[in-house]
């Protein structure tokens, strides 16, 4: 399913969701997310990369929902969904997913060469300064270890081009990396 078509489906589904302020629980509201992010936390195979949100850091999830809603971060699928969310539901939704167990995507580990290349990047940029030792994240800094490698690769490239514009600090760092650096980082982090 293409992103645009999925967006229509999700928007249609949201249209059927009763307005905020009713008795619908956060668990029920979160059901809409499973279409892309998976009903067990593992995103199903799709034509576009989707991140793991189960077990992701609470502050990070809240900031992303906030930014999708405000337009600071744009995505064909997420933007209309976030736009339809009530502001007061953002933190409960983020909390709901942050409390789920991080799933194992069973991605293959990076090759020795890719590990060397990725570690060299970390020595230079010190990614762990924000993402923490072991890339486990904290607060508003996302966990990267075990994240979907295709998603990591795309989002790092999007930071570099400015297509993802909600963290200029990340864009600055990514612009110093080659596509090979980014590919190595994505497989290294995904395989953790």
């Amino acid at each position: 399913m293409g992103a645009f078509r999925l967006a229509i489906v999700v928007a249609a589904a949201l249209a059927g969701v009763p307005a905020a302020g009713n008795a619908q629980s956060i668990e029920e509201k979160a059901q809409i997310c499973a279409a892309c992010h998976g009903d067990s936390g593992i995103p199903p195979e799709q034509s576009f990369p989707v991140p793991v949100i189960w077990g992701q850091k609470l502050g990070y999830l809240f900031f992303q929902l906030r930014d999708f809603k405000s337009g600071a971060r744009k995505n064909d699928v997420m933007s209309p969904i976030a736009e339809g969310l009530d502001q007061k539901d953002l933190m409960p939704l983020a909390t709901y997913f942050s409390k789920k167990a991080w799933p194992d995507l069973q991605q293959k580990q990076a090759s020795a060469d890719a590990v060397t290349q990725a570690q060299r990047v970390n020595t230079s940029v010190v990614c762990t300064s924000c993402h923490q030792e072991g890339f486990q994240g904290d607060g508003t800094q996302p966990r990267l270890a075990g994240q979907s490698a295709p998603y990591l690769q795309k989002t790092m490239l999007d930071f570099r081009t400015g297509d993802r514009a909600n963290n200029p600090g990340m864009s600055g760092f990514m612009r110093g990396l080659t596509e090979q650096d980014i590919a190595a980082l994505a497989t290294w982090l995904g395989g953790m």
């Binding site: 600071a72 020595t123 230079s124 940029v125 010190v126 924000c130 514009a165 909600n166 963290n167 200029p168 600090g169 990340m170 864009s171 600055g172 760092f173 612009r175 110093g176």
Partner: peptide, 19 residues
């Protein structure tokens, strides 16, 4: 690398990087 104020996000205006 110029960017407008990002509402509380990391705002270095570029990058400093170990050689």
């Amino acid at each position: 690398d110029s960017a407008p104020y990002p509402n509380g996000k990391l705002w270095l205006g570029g990058a400093f990087t170990n050689v």
